[in-house]
Amino acid sequence: METTNGSSRTDFILLGFSDRPHLERIISVAVFIFYLVTLVGNTAIILVSYLDSQLHTPMYFFLSNLSAVDLCYTTSIIPQMLVNLWGPTKSITYAGCALQFFFALDLGATECLLLAVMAYDRYAAVCQPLHYMVIMHPGLCHRMVLISWLGGLGSALILCSLTLKLPRCGHRLVDNFFCEMPALVKMACVYSRVIEIAVLTLGVIFLLVPLSLILISYGVITQAVMRIKSASRWRKVLNTCGSHLTVVTLFYGTAIYMYMRPQKTKSQDEGKFLTLFYTIVTPSLNPLIYTLRNKEVKSALKRLLKLKTVQQS
């Protein structure tokens, strides 16, 4: 049997949910709806944050970057997924699979770091309100965002180069609906201790460390909130921090369960549906969570819509 990477020039077969053909149409409709919500919601947040001068603050600068990550992440996965769900073939080219794999790692790690940066921003806003704009000056905000994007890029380059070099012995079947790391590692015909150590190390760096910083930030924020006597400011703090905490819980909960839990302890079907949740559902919920709980965003949307109506009349 061939043990070289000879299958690198052939297409892969994305099995997805082909073992449950009765669910494929239902899943495809749901995925299409969630994708539309993701496109409209995240694009709206980016445009509103850019066009409305009252939202030119660090919080909405970070939120715009988070929306951009979600847009790129879902777009790298969903179009190919819908083609496979609607068509008779389930194939993807090697280049397409490698790109999906790279962008999933890159953007996922970037989102981890961005959520930690946003937690620090909320800490500065709540605990250091008088010095907030001094602490979160534009230079620092841009550097933190740049580090987040470059950190995600670095982790993706490391894991992609290690994973794609694994010999697959001609295996072409990817037991998932897109080229994700656990499915690609499972295709290998050799055990790689290096991959296991790399995944664990980067999982600690990009999942556990940012999550620990987020929890520390919110621990300090909680102490500060308890001392707030103004009911209106207390509600405002809870609204902005509550939105971020909800997104953190959805994203980190599923990501840690998927990547930090031993692969042998969960079924493949369980992994597919969890992957479906954090790749399709969560990016569509993020803009809804931030707009429904945030009066500033809703007010900005109303101002822009009113301005557009006046200009047309």
Results as ranks from 00 to 15, higher is better:
M1T: 13
G6I: 14
D11M: 08
D11V: 10
L14P: 13
F17L: 02
F17Q: 03
L23T: 04
E24Q: 04
R25Y: 02
I26W: 07
I27N: 00
S28M: 12
F32H: 05
Y35C: 01
T38I: 10
A44W: 06
L47K: 04
S49V: 11
L51P: 02
L51G: 02
Q54S: 15
H56I: 02
H56Q: 05
T57F: 06
F62K: 00
S64K: 07
N65F: 15
L66W: 04
L66V: 09
S67W: 12
L71W: 09
C72M: 02
T75R: 09
I77N: 04
I78V: 10
P79G: 08
Q80V: 11
W86N: 04
G87E: 01
A95M: 01
G96R: 00
Q100A: 09
Q100W: 10
F101D: 11
F101N: 14
A104H: 00
L105E: 03
L105P: 02
L105C: 11
D106M: 12
L107C: 01
A109G: 01
A109Q: 00
A109I: 03
E111H: 05
L114C: 00
L114D: 09
V117D: 13
Y123R: 03
A124K: 00
A125S: 01
C127I: 06
C127N: 13
Q128I: 09
P129I: 15
P129K: 00
H131K: 08
Y132T: 03
M136W: 13
C141D: 06
H142C: 07
M144K: 01
V145T: 14
V145E: 10
S148Y: 00
W149G: 08
L150Q: 07
L153P: 08
I158R: 04
L159W: 11
L164S: 03
L166Q: 07
P167M: 01
C169A: 01
G170N: 13
H171G: 06
V174H: 03
V174L: 08
V174Y: 05
N176Q: 07
F178Q: 09
C179F: 07
C179H: 05
P182A: 11
A183G: 05
K186A: 14
A198E: 06
V199N: 02
V199E: 04
L200E: 14
T201E: 13
L202K: 02
G203R: 02
V204L: 14
F206N: 05
S212D: 11
I214M: 14
I216L: 02
S217A: 05
I221Q: 08
T222D: 02
A231F: 03
K236M: 12
N239F: 03
T240P: 02
T246W: 12
T246K: 06
V248M: 12
T249I: 03
L250N: 07
F251S: 13
I256S: 03
M258Y: 13
P262Y: 07
Q263C: 09
K264S: 15
Q268D: 10
D269R: 01
T275R: 05
T275W: 12
L276D: 01
F277E: 09
T279E: 03
T279S: 15
T282H: 11
T282K: 09
S284C: 10
N286K: 15
Y290C: 01
L292R: 09
R293P: 06
E296A: 08
V297G: 05
S299G: 15
A300E: 12
K306H: 10
L307I: 08
Q311Y: 13
